[in-house]
Every structure is written in C-alpha cells, then in structure tokens.
Design a protein around this nucleic acid. Structure first.
Lengths: 150, 150
DNA sequence: TACATTGGTAGCATGTTGCAACCGTTATGA
DNA sequence: TCATAACGGTTGCAACATGCTACCAATGTA
C-alpha cells in the first residue's frame, strides 16, 4: 500500500502525538482555536484552506478528541468547534513552535503576530526544559530510555 | 497549481516554524538526532522511512539550517548529520510533543520510551507557560496581538 | 419572499508518498 | 588483493492526498 505511514502504535510519545495531530493544517487549526476561532467559516477565512480539506481536518480533530463540536454560542442552528482539555494541553506545543519561529525566521524588527499575557500585555517567558529538581536542561543533559513501563 | 501550500511568508511564527520543519518525518528525524542518530543508515533503520524520502528530508533540513552535514566522526569517508544551534532550539518543541503524547495516548502502565535527566535518571518537569513575571499561564490567560513591529 | 451566509460535497488535475529495484563508492576480511 | 558486504543514495512506478472550482441544501436576514 502507498497510504501515508501511521505512527499511532509507536512506543515513542512524540510519534503518537504527531500522528494524532494529523498534519500541519490541523496544527494551524488548533492555533486558530487558541486564538478564538470557533466556526467553520472563521477557520476557513483565517487559514485560506480549501473547504474540503478543512472538513476532513476538523472531522479528524474531533475524532481524535482535540476538538469538540458543540451548538453555536450565539443561539443559531450552526455548530462550533471548541478545544477539549486534550486540545488545550497542546498549548505548550504551540507556544514552543511560536517561540522557535520568532527566534529563527523573522528579521529583527520584522512584524509578526505576538502572544502576550492578557493581564499585563507583556511577552511570555521563553519555555525552559527543567529537571525534576528544577535545573535548566539542554538536549545534551538528557537521554532517552528506550522502553519503560512507567 | 496544486502544490502544497507554503506558510513561509506568514506573519505568524507558528506557521513559519511549521513550514520550516517540512513534514512529520522531518520532526521525527530531529527527534532521532536528539536521541543520538547521526548517520543516514541510522535514521533509516530507526524510522523505517523509504530512502528516497529520507534523502529529500535530510536535504531540506540541511537547507533550512536545522541539520548540518559534517565529516563522519569515526574517520570514515562518510558524512554525518548533526543538529545546528537552530536545530537544538527545537528541543522544547520535541519535549512538548512528547509530554502531550505521554499524557494522552498511553494507557496507564503502557510501556513507552522516556526522556530523562542524564544526571539523575529522573523524568523531566512538565513544561509550563509563564508570564514575564513568572505566573503560570493557561491558554485563556493569553491573547494574540495580530501584528507588531517588535 | 428574496437574497446572502453557512457549511459543506463532488469531480478533476496535479503533487507527493511509499515501494522496490538498481548502482557507484567505501569498508572489510580472508 | 580480491571478493564481498555495507553505505548512501537514485530512478521509475502506482496509489494516495492536496488544492481548486463548481455546486448545493439548510439557515439566517432584510
């Protein structure tokens, strides 16, 4: 078969995450959901994605438990797509990608959208990988245990 | 045209990151690089990816400045692929995906690979999104400024 | 009632993925 | 040194996924 390779039975959590998200569109849909988009049309206008693609992606995100389809909040008969707790837990992933992008793909002073603390309007602190006892860890300070039962 | 949509000129850093990484294979290649893989064959065996796909992905990661092709460390005439500083900065992204996967796609007690602190062999602390003054932020505590010049 | 918006589906052309076969170069070992 | 294996790819093909456009039914609005 030539269907795209799946990773949903991998023993690596990174691979399963990647598989669950589906593709880049899905991740940008999630980003827009964090940003307040709820309706099919909002996602479509914001992303410029073809409607058939969006239909499939939304459906797969709902199936994967990342989004949930609920009655529209304005009382109309339409439906809306909102993040589940599992979807909200993707926040750190989105923030990590955002910070990596800011640091590497924008010229100094080049305008870009920015995520800020709602209360103070300030930029966020860069994410840090910490050990159990709070030391800051670089990639070289860590290692992967191939398989563990806990 | 029907070519896959690019996001490299988006004003959103998330979109540019997504574009720079390329596809899921690329991200898993980076994961393996963090895990110590360096050689073409190592990536190929570890991922089970077709060699033509791997060739293209490695080339694009090198072109994007995530990996660098260097002479083999064992003195042979072959080459190796190692993470650049930009590539190492993807660490938080990989860790975020790993933690999301661990929390959501493994049954309790189901075996999976695990990233640990090399010094103490302990699991890492969950990533936290923090405000400039150190408060823990949920998605709802943040908002996106659409475009900013700094 | 007429018209616009919403949220899709269907069909088609093209691009991308995955598989298997092949190939030149480099290491190895008898 | 000569044969053989490992390495790091390239090529061609078939199937699948993506993106575009047109279309459509249900819902909202003037």
């Amino acid at each position: 078969m030539v269907t795209r390779t799946r990773f949903d039975d991998s023993e690596c959590p990174v691979a399963r995450s990647v598989d669950a998200i589906g593709d880049w569109w899905s991740l940008l849909i999630v980003r827009d959901a964090f940003d307040g988009s709820r309706r099919f049309g909002e996602f479509q206008r914001s992303l410029g994605v073809a409607k058939n693609i969006l239909t499939v992606r939304l459906r797969s995100l709902v199936a994967g438990g990342v989004l949930e389809s609920v009655p529209a909040s304005d009382g109309s008969a339409y439906r809306e797509y909102v993040l589940t707790p599992k979807g909200k837990a993707l926040f750190t992933v989105i923030v990590a990608l955002r910070q990596w992008g800011e640091q590497n793909f924008f010229a100094p002073g080049e305008p870009h959208s920015q995520l800020v603390d709602r209360r103070q309007g300030q930029r966020l602190r860069p994410l840090e990988v910490l050990s159990a006892d709070g030391r800051r860890l670089d990639p070289d300070d860590t290692t992967v245990h191939k398989v563990s039962t806990q």
